[in-house]
Nucleic acid binder design. Structure first.
Lengths: 156, 156
DNA sequence: TTTGAAATGAGTGAAGC
DNA sequence: GCTTCACTCATTTCAAA
C-alpha cells in the first residue's frame, strides 16, 4: 500500500481481497486466503491496514426494499429560495426516512434527492405533506425511476 | 414472518437483527444474540428464513472512493433519439465502469445515471468520449454533486 | 510482510420441547 | 419457533523468519 497526496494505491492482493468482500461481506477470510494463496493471518493484517487508511468505510447487509413493499423510487430536484436555506433544508430532509440520498448540486436545482416509497400515493404524500412544507423549498421536479438497470460500487 | 401479496412483514426481533447487520455486515451473530436475548441458533434460523424470503439480497463491503482519488460525483440526464434505443444504450452504459446507477425515468430524459469520476477532467472525458458516443444519445444534462449530505438504506 | 501455531470465539445442524 | 449440545471452522494474536 502506498499513499501519495492522501490518495491510497493498493496492490493486486488487496484488490482481490476487496473485490471478494465487496461482493459478499461475510465471506470468510480463510476462504479468500486459499483463493489468493497467502495465509489468513496475512489477509487479516492487510485488512487492518486498509481499514486504517480509511479505504474501507464499513460493511452493510443489503435488504431488498421491494419485498417490504417499497417499489417506487424517484429523484426529486428541489429549488430553494436562497442558497442560505440549504443546511436547514438538509436537516429537515434527514428526518424523512424515505429520503435515501441528498446531493447539493450544480445546475437547475439547489438539491437533488433520491427517495424510496411504497407506491405513487405514498410518494405524493411525502412530496406534498413533507417536502413541500420545508421552509425555503419553492418548487420541485420529480422523476420517477421506472426501472433501475445498473446499481454498483466503484470498480477496483 | 408473515407474507401477504408477496409483501413480507417481519417482527421486532427480525428488525433488530437486520438493523444490526445493515450497519455492520460482519457483526457476529452471537453478539446480536446476546443483545436481543435469544440464542445464536435462533438468529441463525431467522436469517435463513429472511434470506429465503428474498428480503436479504446479500452483503457488501463499502469502500470509500475518495481515498482512491474518486471525488467527482455527478448525475447525468440523457436524451435518447427514440425510446427504442434504451436497451442498447443501457448495455453500453454497463461497460463504462464510472457509471454506478442507471435509471429509466419519467420526465425530461429517457435515462438518468449516477457517475463517479476522479475529477472534472475525468468526468468530461467520460462524457465526451464515451457517453456522447453511444448510439441514440442525442443530448445530456450534467449535475455535479458538490456534496452528498445523506446516504442510507431504507429504514427498518 | 509473511508464516504457523495456539487460544478464543463464531457458525452450523440435529434433537427435543 | 426456541433451546441446548456437540462439532467444525474462522478470527485473532504473537513470535519468528
Amino acid at each position: 500500500m502506498k499513499i501519495t497526496n492522501n490518495i491510497v494505491e493498493i496492490d493486486g492482493i488487496d484488490k482481490e481481497i476487496l473485490r471478494n468482500l465487496m461482493e459478499d461481506a461475510r465471506k470468510p477470510i480463510l476462504e479468500i486466503a486459499r483463493k489468493v494463496g497467502i495465509s489468513g493471518a496475512a489477509i487479516h493484517q492487510r485488512l487492518r491496514k486498509l481499514e486504517a487508511s480509511g479505504l474501507i468505510s464499513g460493511s452493510k447487509f443489503i435488504v431488498n426494499p421491494k419485498v417490504l413493499g417499497y417499489s417506487t423510487m424517484a429523484f426529486i430536484g428541489i429549488f430553494l429560495d436562497k442558497a442560505m436555506s440549504n443546511p436547514k433544508a438538509v436537516k429537515e430532509l434527514q428526518k424523512i426516512p424515505e429520503v435515501l440520498e441528498c446531493h447539493y448540486t450544480t445546475g437547475n436545482w439547489s438539491i437533488l434527492i433520491k427517495i424510496l416509497c411504497k407506491d405513487n400515493e405514498h410518494l405524493m404524500n411525502v412530496l406534498n405533506k413533507k417536502i413541500q412544507h420545508i421552509e425555503g423549498v419553492s418548487r420541485t421536479e420529480t422523476f420517477i425511476s421506472l426501472n433501475q438497470q445498473i446499481d454498483r460500487q466503484i470498480s477496483i
